[in-house]
């Protein structure tokens, strides 16, 4: 245990995801040794992020203003919405530059163990967005795990009566990989989701 303030800092850092006690200690001592101006900048950035950043009132993505950059972009396709669990999934999909539609961030996945039900996710907001009939396709891009699948199934059932096209991202083989190294589940899924080779 260290002197009060130092230990406080270590404890606080240790609460961050992916930071264990050893790393927390290392970061704390790095900060102690660092230039005061650098530390002030970090502290400022931390405060600012909490003060300024909010969630887009349309899609739920992190935003600096009322609406996020993507929702404000008039060039994006209004007919397709891609549903993801977290803001970081938006970033991942944006990197592909493949998708030009809009997003909807749920804020998690259905998980009764963690006490998360549909009402805790931004599903009502999604339904409101779909209500005007402009959207023709809903792409469900929740994680390919049990909770993500459950959420996808839930959404698909919910929007079915609205008559729009609902798709799910394919799961399968990684590009550039070797077939022999794929695990059985992934390979099995890839078989399920095989498609016609059009030549």
């Amino acid at each position: 245990m260290y002197e009060g303030v130092v230990q406080n800092l270590i404890d606080e850092l240790g609460m961050l995801p992916g930071v264990g006690p050893k790393s927390a200690q290392r970061i704390a001592f790095h900060l102690l040794a660092a230039d005061p101006a650098d530390v002030k900048r970090l502290a400022h950035a931390l405060l600012e992020v909490k003060e300024k950043v909010r969630f887009c009132r349309v899609c739920g993505n992190v935003a600096a203003e009322e609406e996020c950059r993507i929702c404000r972009d008039a060039r994006r396709d209004d007919h397709v919405i891609c549903v993801v669990e977290e803001s970081k999934d938006v970033v991942a999909i944006e990197k592909t530059r493949e998708f030009r539609g809009r997003y909807h961030v749920l804020g998690g996945a259905i998980s009764p163990i963690d006490g998360i039900g549909p009402d805790d996710l931004r599903i009502r907001e999604l339904m409101t967005r779909l209500a005007d009939g402009r959207v023709t396709e809903l792409i469900i891009a929740t994680d390919p795990n049990l909770e993500g699948e459950a959420t996808a199934t839930y959404l698909a059932r919910l929007v079915k009566p609205m008559g729009l096209k609902v798709t799910r991202l394919a799961s399968g083989l990684p590009v550039g990989g070797d077939l022999e190294y794929a695990d059985e589940v992934t390979l099995g899924r890839a078989f399920e989701g095989r498609r016609l080779l059009d030549v």
Partner: peptide, 24 residues
């Protein structure tokens, strides 16, 4: 036992979510 879960899920929710887990 599950105060958080209780607070989280409204009663109407439960049935619709249950169907999803039934499927799984």
């Amino acid at each position: 036992e599950s105060e958080a879960a209780f607070a989280a899920a409204g009663a109407g929710d439960v049935l619709s979510t249950l169907e999803v887990w039934d499927a799984q």
